[in-house]
Computed example of a mutant assay.
Amino acid sequence: MVERAPADGRRRGRDRPLVEPVPDAPAAVAALGDERGLLLADYHAGIEAGLRYERGVELDSAGDERRERVLDLLTRTDADRLVVLGDLGHRIGGAGDAETAELDALLSAVGVPVTLALGNHDPGLAEAFGDRVDVTPAGGARLGDVGVLHGHTWPAPEVLGADVVCMGHEHVAVRLADAVGGGRAEKAWLRGPLARDAFVDDVDLAGVDWRDPELVVFPAFNDRSGGTWVNVDGQGFLSPFLPDALESGEAYLLDGTRLGDYRRV
């Protein structure tokens, strides 16, 4: 049984939501101190060139469409800053020509400051675009009361001291069965309390003011980057702290439909 619910990032005891998904989009708005941020994950600029090289798959570039989607979301949300939760680029080890051209067009068009939580596909982007993008360390950073990171490494202690922790990396999807026994994959959000015990052996928590943060795992913004079906056996998580850090997470579709415990969808 599915249920529509306002998965808006509201913390218990708070009057305002810190992180609120944009309806029907793999993106969210967030209160980042004095700024209103548009958050998205796994943009993967230039992915078509990567797929051609990696798998021999020939696809026309959707770079213009990706850029227009971001610009539309910035307008709709009236955001002051764009925050990408890792993998802004696609080619590991340095931007290729197609990736560089797509990123140059994107960064020239957005019209707001851009923060990149460094992802595993982003090496070289700081050198190529560091004058136009604020790049965090691999462990992420804290923007106001919101911690941001990609999720491919252990988070920095300051990230765990936030009220809400936002990450990408997993390209979250769920497999849903239809009435005739078939199935389809749908992008999804994962949300739930962040379990402190998952970090005690690998992160120095001595100076962390633990606030019982919520973890929000973003779906991929890129429609061609695939995904991990989190409710299918054998589809393990990529992050070193999942699933241990999300013991009681729930899955939500992009339209806000609450699916319940992601492991039992």
Results as ranks from 00 to 15, higher is better:
Gly161Val: 04
Leu116Gln: 05
Gly93Ala: 01
Glu3Cys: 14
His152Ile: 09
Ala251Phe: 03
Arg258Phe: 07
Met1Lys: 09
Asp145Val: 14
Val112Ala: 09
Lys187His: 09
Asp97Cys: 12
Asp201Gln: 13
Trp210Glu: 02
His171Gly: 02
Ala27His: 01
Ala195Ile: 09
Ala251Thr: 09
Pro243Thr: 06
Ser248Ala: 15
Val112Asp: 06
Thr77Asp: 11
Ala195Leu: 14
Leu73His: 03
Phe199Ser: 04
Ala126Val: 07
Val232Phe: 09
Arg264Thr: 14
Arg11Glu: 09
Ala105Met: 02
Ala5His: 15
Asp233Ile: 12
Gly181Tyr: 13
Gly33Met: 05
Asp202Met: 15
Asp80Thr: 07
Leu51His: 15
Asp223Arg: 13
Ser225Leu: 08
Ala177Ile: 14
Gln235Ser: 11
Thr228Leu: 15
Asp202Ser: 14
Gly93Met: 03
Ala206Met: 12
Thr228Lys: 09
Leu160Trp: 03
Asp87Tyr: 00
Ala25Pro: 13
Tyr252Val: 01
Val84Arg: 00
His169Gly: 09
Gly192Ala: 08
Val19His: 04
Gly111Ile: 04
Ala141Cys: 12
Ala156Ser: 13
Arg263Asp: 06
Asp201Met: 10
Ser248His: 13
His121Lys: 07
Arg196Val: 10
Asp255Met: 02
Gly236Asn: 14
Pro17Leu: 06
Pro113Asp: 06
Val172Arg: 00
Ala156Cys: 13
Ile47Asn: 00
Leu149Cys: 05
Gly161Cys: 03
Pro17Phe: 07
Arg211Asn: 12
Asn120Ala: 11
Arg258Ala: 15
Arg211Ser: 05
Val165Ile: 10
Val114Asn: 06
Ala177Ser: 14
Asp204Lys: 13
Ala156Phe: 09
Asp87Val: 07
Val203Gln: 06
